[in-house]
Structures are given as structure tokens and as C-alpha cells.
Amino acid sequence: MSMAVKKTSEPFEFTKKNREWANGQIKKYPAGKQASAVMPLLTRAQEQNGGWLSVPAIEHIAELLEMPYIRAYEVASFYTMYNLSSVGTHVIEICTTTPCWLRGSDDIVAAAKDELGIGFGETTADGEITLLEVECAGACVNAPVCAIHHSYFEDLTPDAMRQLIRDLKAGKDLKPGPQIDRHTSAPVGGPTTLQDEGAV
């Protein structure tokens, strides 16, 4: 993904409701340490701004927190959760960090790229779906995983990845969690221990 934040002249300001929420976040920290609230505020600004942080959005947060623009920009550029260029309606974030990679995330990525016809950091021509590569999603136990709209889709196979994209395009409800026969993080195919309920 490109490091440089995309230029836009669209102004940004928190809605009244978000502003009140932001004031609550700022109050959590001692006076003079209000800059500590930068991450939740950036997240909320990203949500309000259609999934990404523009320059005016970053500057608005920096001004709210009385911190230099560059300090807010450093934070926004550090975390992959902040998008610095516009994204589609849906964002598919595929984890490629070591555990997912060992479990075949390369194949998942290839399937997604092929199905969507785009690469990482790109958005489909209709502006619907953006594909992103992310650092460890923290769900290594069910690797490989991807995230769509704050939900995790786990134990992916290339086919499952393709099906998810097709369903997403068709507007169907997606079933979060493992995409194979597994309950949460329990063993595949059902429990292997503590099966004798009487003995428990």
C-alpha cells in the first residue's frame, strides 16, 4: 500500500454525535495527555469518512488533541487498520503474517486476487470491494484468516475465499468464523478429549 496519504480537498469535521463521543474519550486521560486519545478518534474519523483517513480528517483529529499534524500522521501511517486512501464499500483484509502464511495464505491471496481481478491496495472498478494485506490478525489458531466488516472468516481455503467474495458481491449474508467443520477454535471435526460427559 502506498505510504503517502492521498490528497483531497474534501473538508472533514466530526458530526455533533461523534464530537461528543470524542470528548468522552479525551476525558479518560489526564489533562495535558489528551493526545493519548488519538487512536480511538482516528478510528471513529475513519468510520465517519467512509472507511479511510483523509488529510483533513487527520488534521481535524490533531487539532482536537492539540498535537502537531505529523504526530497524528505518524500514528495513522503506522497501523494497517488506518487506510490512507479511499476504499470500497467492502474491505477484505487478508492476513499474511507467518502463521497464516505457513497455513497457505499465499493461496488465499491468489484466489482473492484472481476472483476480484485486483491486487493488494486496489479497489474493484465498481468501487465495491477493496483488497488489503494486513499484519497478524491475532487469530493464528484458525489460520489462514481474513476480515470483512469487523468479522473474521477463518480456516480459509481458496474455494471458501472465492465463495465469500461471490456472496459478498451478491449481497448475501456471510457466516463469520471457521469456514470448515469446526466450532470456534475447537478441534476440527468435533472434540477429541473430554468426550465422556459422565466422567466430567
Binding site: 505510504m3 496519504v5 502537531p68 500522521y73 503506522f78
Partner: peptide, 25 residues
């Protein structure tokens, strides 16, 4: 820039291998 010159305009953006030093915009 931040402490002595008092112009907090330099920073490190990105992280890990992608970290870069730059002035704001």
C-alpha cells in the same frame, strides 16, 4: 526539529521496513 528548533514537522511514517523520515506532506 521537535525539541530544539520547536517546529514539530519532521516525523517517521510507516513502520518496520517501510518506515520513512519525512516532513509533514
Amino acid at each position: 526539529a521537535t525539541d530544539v528548533a520547536g517546529v514539530p514537522e519532521l516525523g517517521a511514517v510507516g513502520r518496520g521496513e517501510h518506515m520513512e523520515i519525512t516532513t509533514y506532506l
